[in-house]
Protein backbone atom coordinates (compact mmCIF):
# COMPACT_ATOMS: atom_id res chain seq x y z
CA UNK A 1 0.00 0.00 0.00
CA UNK A 2 2.72 2.45 1.04
CA UNK A 3 4.60 1.54 -2.12
CA UNK A 4 1.52 2.29 -4.18
CA UNK A 5 1.09 5.73 -2.63
CA UNK A 6 4.73 6.62 -3.14
CA UNK A 7 4.53 5.43 -6.72
CA UNK A 8 1.40 7.46 -7.36
CA UNK A 9 2.94 10.54 -5.81
CA UNK A 10 6.01 10.13 -7.99
CA UNK A 11 3.77 9.77 -11.03
CA UNK A 12 2.27 13.14 -10.24
CA UNK A 13 5.58 14.86 -10.88
CA UNK A 14 5.74 14.25 -14.65
CA UNK A 15 2.01 14.96 -14.93
CA UNK A 16 2.37 18.31 -13.20
CA UNK A 17 5.46 19.09 -15.26
CA UNK A 18 3.60 18.33 -18.47
CA UNK A 19 0.59 20.39 -17.46
CA UNK A 20 2.82 23.32 -16.52
CA UNK A 21 4.68 23.10 -19.81
CA UNK A 22 1.50 22.98 -21.88
CA UNK A 23 -0.08 25.88 -19.99
CA UNK A 24 3.13 27.88 -20.17
CA UNK A 25 3.38 27.51 -23.93
CA UNK A 26 -0.32 28.19 -24.50
CA UNK A 27 -0.34 31.29 -22.35
CA UNK A 28 2.80 32.66 -23.95
CA UNK A 29 1.89 32.05 -27.56
CA UNK A 30 -1.66 33.36 -27.33
CA UNK A 31 -0.82 36.93 -26.52
CA UNK A 32 1.31 39.55 -24.96
CA UNK A 33 0.21 40.91 -21.58
CA UNK A 34 2.08 44.16 -22.16
CA UNK A 35 -0.48 45.28 -24.74
CA UNK A 36 -3.27 44.94 -22.23
CA UNK A 37 -1.43 46.55 -19.36
CA UNK A 38 -0.58 49.90 -20.86
CA UNK A 39 -2.97 52.78 -21.54
CA UNK A 40 -4.35 53.24 -25.03
CA UNK A 41 -1.95 56.12 -25.53
CA UNK A 42 1.24 54.17 -24.80
CA UNK A 43 3.93 54.23 -27.44
CA UNK A 44 5.98 51.44 -29.00
CA UNK A 45 8.84 52.47 -26.77
CA UNK A 46 6.72 52.19 -23.61
CA UNK A 47 5.83 48.66 -24.61
CA UNK A 48 9.42 47.66 -25.24
CA UNK A 49 10.51 49.06 -21.87
CA UNK A 50 7.78 47.26 -19.95
CA UNK A 51 8.34 44.03 -21.86
CA UNK A 52 12.03 44.10 -20.93
CA UNK A 53 11.31 44.98 -17.33
CA UNK A 54 8.98 41.99 -17.02
CA UNK A 55 11.49 39.68 -18.66
CA UNK A 56 9.15 38.95 -21.55
CA UNK A 57 11.74 39.84 -24.16
CA UNK A 58 13.83 36.76 -23.34
CA UNK A 59 13.56 33.54 -25.40
CA UNK A 60 10.66 31.31 -24.38
CA UNK A 61 12.83 28.37 -23.22
CA UNK A 62 14.78 30.62 -20.86
CA UNK A 63 11.53 32.03 -19.47
CA UNK A 64 10.25 28.48 -19.00
CA UNK A 65 13.46 27.40 -17.27
CA UNK A 66 13.23 30.33 -14.89
CA UNK A 67 9.56 29.61 -14.30
CA UNK A 68 10.29 25.97 -13.40
CA UNK A 69 13.20 26.91 -11.19
CA UNK A 70 10.98 29.29 -9.22
CA UNK A 71 7.89 27.10 -9.33
CA UNK A 72 9.55 24.17 -7.58
CA UNK A 73 10.26 26.61 -4.77
CA UNK A 74 6.57 27.52 -4.65
CA UNK A 75 7.04 30.85 -6.40
CA UNK A 76 4.85 31.23 -9.48
CA UNK A 77 5.90 34.78 -10.02
CA UNK A 78 4.07 38.05 -9.64
CA UNK A 79 0.62 38.69 -10.96
CA UNK A 80 0.92 41.52 -13.51
CA UNK A 81 -2.61 42.50 -12.69
CA UNK A 82 -2.55 42.56 -8.90
CA UNK A 83 1.16 43.19 -8.40
CA UNK A 84 1.30 40.42 -5.79
CA UNK A 85 2.61 36.86 -5.60
CA UNK A 86 0.40 34.62 -7.70
CA UNK A 87 0.10 31.54 -5.49
CA UNK A 88 -1.46 33.21 -2.42
CA UNK A 89 -3.91 35.00 -4.73
CA UNK A 90 -5.02 31.61 -6.04
CA UNK A 91 -5.10 29.89 -2.66
CA UNK A 92 -7.26 32.60 -1.10
CA UNK A 93 -9.98 31.74 -3.67
CA UNK A 94 -10.08 28.06 -2.78
CA UNK A 95 -12.40 28.31 0.25
CA UNK A 96 -15.06 30.11 -1.79
CA UNK A 97 -14.75 27.57 -4.59
CA UNK A 98 -14.94 24.62 -2.19
CA UNK A 99 -17.97 26.15 -0.52
CA UNK A 100 -19.85 26.66 -3.76
CA UNK A 101 -18.89 23.30 -5.23
CA UNK A 102 -19.68 21.50 -1.97
CA UNK A 103 -23.05 23.16 -1.48
CA UNK A 104 -23.94 22.59 -5.13
CA UNK A 105 -23.09 18.89 -4.85
CA UNK A 106 -25.02 18.60 -1.61
CA UNK A 107 -28.17 20.06 -3.14
CA UNK A 108 -27.77 17.92 -6.23
CA UNK A 109 -27.44 14.77 -4.13
CA UNK A 110 -30.37 15.64 -1.89
CA UNK A 111 -32.57 16.22 -4.92
CA UNK A 112 -31.34 13.45 -7.17
CA UNK A 113 -31.40 10.40 -4.92
CA UNK A 114 -35.09 10.50 -3.94
CA UNK A 115 -36.18 11.70 -7.37
CA UNK A 116 -34.14 8.99 -9.12
CA UNK A 117 -35.51 6.22 -6.90
CA UNK A 118 -39.12 7.36 -7.20
CA UNK A 119 -38.71 7.68 -10.90
CA UNK A 120 -37.37 4.12 -11.20
CA UNK A 121 -39.97 2.57 -8.92
CA UNK A 122 -42.84 4.33 -10.64
CA UNK A 123 -41.45 3.89 -14.10
CA UNK A 124 -43.66 4.81 -17.00
CA UNK A 125 -46.20 6.48 -14.75
CA UNK A 126 -47.08 10.14 -14.95
CA UNK A 127 -44.90 10.74 -11.90
CA UNK A 128 -41.92 9.22 -13.71
CA UNK A 129 -42.65 11.29 -16.79
CA UNK A 130 -42.96 14.37 -14.62
CA UNK A 131 -39.60 13.74 -12.96
CA UNK A 132 -37.98 12.95 -16.30
CA UNK A 133 -39.41 16.16 -17.68
CA UNK A 134 -38.14 18.02 -14.65
CA UNK A 135 -34.62 16.69 -15.14
CA UNK A 136 -34.71 17.51 -18.84
CA UNK A 137 -35.70 21.02 -17.80
CA UNK A 138 -32.97 21.16 -15.16
CA UNK A 139 -30.37 20.07 -17.67
CA UNK A 140 -31.73 22.38 -20.32
CA UNK A 141 -31.84 25.58 -18.29
CA UNK A 142 -28.57 27.45 -18.66
CA UNK A 143 -27.03 28.44 -15.33
CA UNK A 144 -27.09 32.16 -15.99
CA UNK A 145 -30.80 32.04 -16.70
CA UNK A 146 -31.63 29.89 -13.68
CA UNK A 147 -29.54 32.21 -11.52
CA UNK A 148 -31.20 35.39 -12.72
CA UNK A 149 -34.67 33.85 -12.34
CA UNK A 150 -33.91 32.65 -8.82
CA UNK A 151 -32.69 36.13 -7.90
CA UNK A 152 -35.86 37.70 -9.31
CA UNK A 153 -38.14 35.30 -7.46
CA UNK A 154 -36.45 34.70 -4.13
CA UNK A 155 -34.61 38.00 -3.67
CA UNK A 156 -36.45 40.74 -5.53
CA UNK A 157 -40.05 39.51 -5.24
CA UNK A 158 -40.07 37.39 -2.08
CA UNK A 159 -37.09 38.97 -0.36
CA UNK A 160 -35.99 35.70 1.29
CA UNK A 161 -32.37 35.47 0.21
CA UNK A 162 -29.68 38.08 -0.50
CA UNK A 163 -29.13 38.83 -4.18
CA UNK A 164 -25.41 38.29 -4.47
CA UNK A 165 -22.01 38.33 -2.86
CA UNK A 166 -20.31 36.15 -0.30
CA UNK A 167 -21.40 36.30 3.32
CA UNK A 168 -23.32 34.04 5.65
CA UNK A 169 -24.85 30.67 4.68
CA UNK A 170 -27.92 32.47 3.28
CA UNK A 171 -25.68 33.86 0.54
CA UNK A 172 -24.86 30.34 -0.56
CA UNK A 173 -28.41 29.09 -1.10
CA UNK A 174 -29.27 30.54 -4.51
CA UNK A 175 -25.91 29.93 -6.19
CA UNK A 176 -25.89 26.40 -4.81
CA UNK A 177 -29.36 25.70 -6.19
CA UNK A 178 -28.34 27.18 -9.54
CA UNK A 179 -25.31 24.98 -9.69
CA UNK A 180 -27.00 21.95 -8.13
CA UNK A 181 -30.04 21.95 -10.43
CA UNK A 182 -28.09 20.98 -13.52
CA UNK A 183 -26.07 18.33 -11.73
CA UNK A 184 -29.17 16.97 -9.99
CA UNK A 185 -30.85 16.58 -13.35
CA UNK A 186 -27.97 14.52 -14.67
CA UNK A 187 -27.73 12.44 -11.49
CA UNK A 188 -31.48 11.78 -11.35
CA UNK A 189 -31.44 10.23 -14.77
CA UNK A 190 -28.36 8.22 -13.91
CA UNK A 191 -29.87 6.90 -10.69
CA UNK A 192 -33.10 6.04 -12.47
CA UNK A 193 -31.29 4.05 -15.15
CA UNK A 194 -29.04 2.32 -12.70
CA UNK A 195 -31.92 1.45 -10.34
CA UNK A 196 -33.98 0.09 -13.21
CA UNK A 197 -31.16 -2.17 -14.20
CA UNK A 198 -30.64 -3.44 -10.66
CA UNK A 199 -34.33 -3.95 -9.98
CA UNK A 200 -34.29 -6.49 -12.80
CA UNK A 201 -31.39 -8.43 -11.30
CA UNK A 202 -31.96 -11.92 -10.04
CA UNK A 203 -30.85 -11.17 -6.48
CA UNK A 204 -33.59 -8.57 -6.19
CA UNK A 205 -36.12 -11.14 -7.37
CA UNK A 206 -34.64 -13.56 -4.84
CA UNK A 207 -34.89 -11.00 -2.06
CA UNK A 208 -38.50 -10.32 -2.92
CA UNK A 209 -39.34 -14.02 -3.18
CA UNK A 210 -37.84 -14.51 0.28
CA UNK A 211 -40.66 -12.24 1.41
CA UNK A 212 -38.47 -9.30 2.46
CA UNK A 213 -40.18 -5.98 2.99
CA UNK A 214 -40.15 -3.87 -0.17
CA UNK A 215 -38.41 -1.00 1.67
CA UNK A 216 -35.59 -3.35 2.66
CA UNK A 217 -35.31 -4.62 -0.89
CA UNK A 218 -35.14 -1.10 -2.27
CA UNK A 219 -32.91 0.60 0.26
CA UNK A 220 -30.71 -2.26 1.39
CA UNK A 221 -30.32 -4.33 -1.72
CA UNK A 222 -30.98 -2.11 -4.70
CA UNK A 223 -30.03 1.42 -3.73
CA UNK A 224 -26.56 0.76 -2.39
CA UNK A 225 -25.57 -0.96 -5.60
CA UNK A 226 -27.37 1.62 -7.61
CA UNK A 227 -25.25 4.37 -6.08
CA UNK A 228 -22.00 3.09 -7.59
CA UNK A 229 -22.18 5.19 -10.75
CA UNK A 230 -23.46 8.13 -8.70
CA UNK A 231 -20.38 8.13 -6.53
CA UNK A 232 -18.23 8.11 -9.65
CA UNK A 233 -20.15 11.05 -11.07
CA UNK A 234 -19.95 12.92 -7.79
CA UNK A 235 -16.19 12.62 -7.69
CA UNK A 236 -15.83 13.80 -11.27
CA UNK A 237 -18.29 16.65 -10.83
CA UNK A 238 -16.71 17.89 -7.64
CA UNK A 239 -13.27 18.24 -9.16
CA UNK A 240 -14.67 19.86 -12.28
CA UNK A 241 -16.53 22.38 -10.14
CA UNK A 242 -13.30 23.63 -8.60
CA UNK A 243 -12.54 26.46 -10.97
CA UNK A 244 -15.31 25.53 -13.37
CA UNK A 245 -18.25 27.52 -12.06
CA UNK A 246 -17.64 30.80 -13.82
CA UNK A 247 -21.20 31.47 -14.95
CA UNK A 248 -22.70 30.96 -11.51
CA UNK A 249 -19.89 32.97 -9.93
CA UNK A 250 -20.51 35.82 -12.34
CA UNK A 251 -24.27 35.96 -11.86
CA UNK A 252 -23.99 35.88 -8.07
CA UNK A 253 -20.72 37.81 -7.88
CA UNK A 254 -19.19 34.93 -5.98
CA UNK A 255 -15.42 35.36 -5.55
CA UNK A 256 -14.33 31.89 -6.60
CA UNK A 257 -11.44 30.49 -8.57
CA UNK A 258 -13.40 30.55 -11.83
CA UNK A 259 -13.62 34.35 -11.95
CA UNK A 260 -9.95 34.68 -11.09
CA UNK A 261 -8.87 32.18 -13.72
CA UNK A 262 -10.98 33.60 -16.54
CA UNK A 263 -10.03 37.21 -15.84
CA UNK A 264 -6.40 36.09 -15.69
CA UNK A 265 -6.75 34.43 -19.09
CA UNK A 266 -8.35 37.58 -20.49
CA UNK A 267 -5.61 39.84 -19.18
CA UNK A 268 -2.86 37.32 -20.00
CA UNK A 269 -1.89 37.33 -16.35
CA UNK A 270 0.43 34.40 -16.90
CA UNK A 271 1.55 33.71 -13.37
CA UNK A 272 -2.03 33.51 -12.09
CA UNK A 273 -3.05 31.15 -14.89
CA UNK A 274 -0.08 28.92 -14.18
CA UNK A 275 -0.58 28.90 -10.43
CA UNK A 276 -4.32 28.28 -10.75
CA UNK A 277 -3.98 25.42 -13.22
CA UNK A 278 -1.25 23.93 -11.07
CA UNK A 279 -3.40 24.09 -7.93
CA UNK A 280 -6.44 22.65 -9.71
CA UNK A 281 -4.29 19.86 -11.16
CA UNK A 282 -3.02 18.97 -7.70
CA UNK A 283 -6.56 18.89 -6.32
CA UNK A 284 -7.75 16.62 -9.12
CA UNK A 285 -4.79 14.28 -8.72
CA UNK A 286 -5.18 14.23 -4.95
CA UNK A 287 -8.89 13.45 -5.11
CA UNK A 288 -8.22 10.67 -7.60
CA UNK A 289 -5.51 9.19 -5.44
CA UNK A 290 -7.71 9.41 -2.37
CA UNK A 291 -10.52 7.59 -4.15
CA UNK A 292 -8.14 4.87 -5.26
CA UNK A 293 -6.82 4.42 -1.75
CA UNK A 294 -10.28 4.30 -0.24
CA UNK A 295 -11.44 1.68 -2.73
CA UNK A 296 -8.42 -0.45 -2.17
CA UNK A 297 -8.64 -0.18 1.57
CA UNK A 298 -12.28 -1.20 1.59
CA UNK A 299 -12.24 -3.83 -1.06
CA UNK A 300 -9.17 -6.04 -1.03
CA UNK A 301 -10.27 -7.60 -4.32
CA UNK A 302 -9.21 -4.38 -6.03
CA UNK A 303 -5.51 -4.61 -6.82
CA UNK A 304 -3.32 -1.77 -7.96
CA UNK A 305 0.13 -2.27 -9.24
Amino acid sequence: MGKYIVKSLLQMVPVLFLISAIVFVLVHVTGDPVNLMLPETATEEDRAVLSKALGLDRPLYIQFGLFLYNAVQGDFGHSFHYGQSALPLVLERLPASFQLAGAGMLIATLLAIPLGIISALKRNTYLDLFISGLSALGKGMPNFWTGIMLILLFSVILGIFPVSGKGGPEHLVLPAITLGAGIAAQMTRLIRASMLEILNQEYIRTARSKGLLETIVIFKHALRNGLIPVVTIMGLQFTSLIGGTLVTETVFSWPGLGQLLVSAVNTHDMSIVQAAVFVIAIIVLAVNLLTDIVYRYLDPRIKYS
Partner: peptide, 15 residues
Amino acid sequence: RSIPEASTRVSELLT
Protein backbone atom coordinates in the same frame (compact mmCIF):
# COMPACT_ATOMS: atom_id res chain seq x y z
CA ARG B 1 -19.16 45.72 -4.46
CA SER B 2 -17.94 44.06 -7.62
CA ILE B 3 -20.96 42.63 -9.45
CA PRO B 4 -20.16 41.70 -13.03
CA GLU B 5 -23.70 40.77 -14.09
CA ALA B 6 -25.74 43.89 -14.87
CA SER B 7 -29.12 42.40 -13.97
CA THR B 8 -27.74 41.31 -10.60
CA ARG B 9 -26.55 44.87 -9.94
CA VAL B 10 -30.02 46.14 -10.71
CA SER B 11 -31.61 43.48 -8.48
CA GLU B 12 -29.30 44.52 -5.64
CA LEU B 13 -30.44 48.10 -6.11
CA LEU B 14 -34.10 47.10 -6.14
CA THR B 15 -33.71 45.14 -2.91
